[in-house]
Amino acid sequence: MHGTHTIVYKHQLSEEVFRIDVEAPLVARERKAGQFVIVMYDENFSERIPLTIADADPVRGTVTLIFQTVGASTHRLALKNPGDSVVLLGPLGNPTHIERYGWAVCVGGGIGLAPLHPIAKALKEAGNRVTVISGARTKDLLIMQDELAAIADEHIVVTDDGSFGRKALVTEPLGELCGRSPPPDIIVTIGPPIMMKFCAETTRPFGIKTLASLNTIMIDGTGMCGGCRVSVGGKTKFVCVDGPEFDAHLVDWNGMLMRLGTYKEIEKEAHDRCHLEMQIESLEARDEGARAPEKEPAK
């Protein structure tokens, strides 16, 4: 039996944000901007965790995943180290439709900045003028900034607490850009659902086409479970096979936010327990002193 993949690089980007590069040559070759993978930290008891692909290197045969430790499962994943194996399935979902729109505005919030990067890059390569709005709660959670700055013709950075860039929510500069003449031709937004919802509300009065990449509850990721269903334009759609990107003006955001809370209470309990376990494990690891030093990948 084959099917597990080895972590070749790991880097902690901030207290809660991790980057891992996983050896997966076929996924690295096939994946396109906007697609995601499902990862499991083991083959027996792990949850199936959908994660967007931040980057891929077809030559090295690796995909880069950036994730935030928001629950028990992502915490367990964060405990994995180079040399460890994980389950990885992908690339899943439909790639972003890339064309030469003219002026594209890419809005990313928090961990959403990671999957925003390949989309912004693809839009740039297709000949668009690209403006990137990077937003995060605080400076520490701003990721992929060098990469995004390298692509963007214009890069606007905001934080909720003003610890870096402008003290604002992403919707503030987004609204200003929409008011420019001529206005943007396309808006792409990836980030927390509540942020995407308000991005949609910001652009709606301007009638500018807005795409949002949804990260709903998901089991198989292949069109079998229906857990990822969301109402778009009054029709039930499946994020895994119909998405993950949809017209943000047609998404039933309130319904989606509600469904995302399905396991909130259970997850909180598991998360708390997990924090304890993590502390114990990291103490044990420190005592053993057995952890291999992390290495930068060869470019």
């Binding site: 089991i219 069109g223 079998m224 479970c225 229906g226 857990g227 269903r229 969301v230 109402s231 039930t236 499946f238 096979v241 039933d252 319904g255 509600m258 469904r259 809370g261 399905t262």
Partner: peptide, 23 residues
């Protein structure tokens, strides 16, 4: 094998607590 689960197509089917048997 089997694909997308069928739903009843009745109002309220996206409420929290409605699952496909597959899920």
């Amino acid at each position: 094998g089997a694909g997308l689960p069928k739903f009843m197509d009745i109002p309220g089917e996206n409420f929290v607590g409605v699952f496909s048997a597959n899920e």
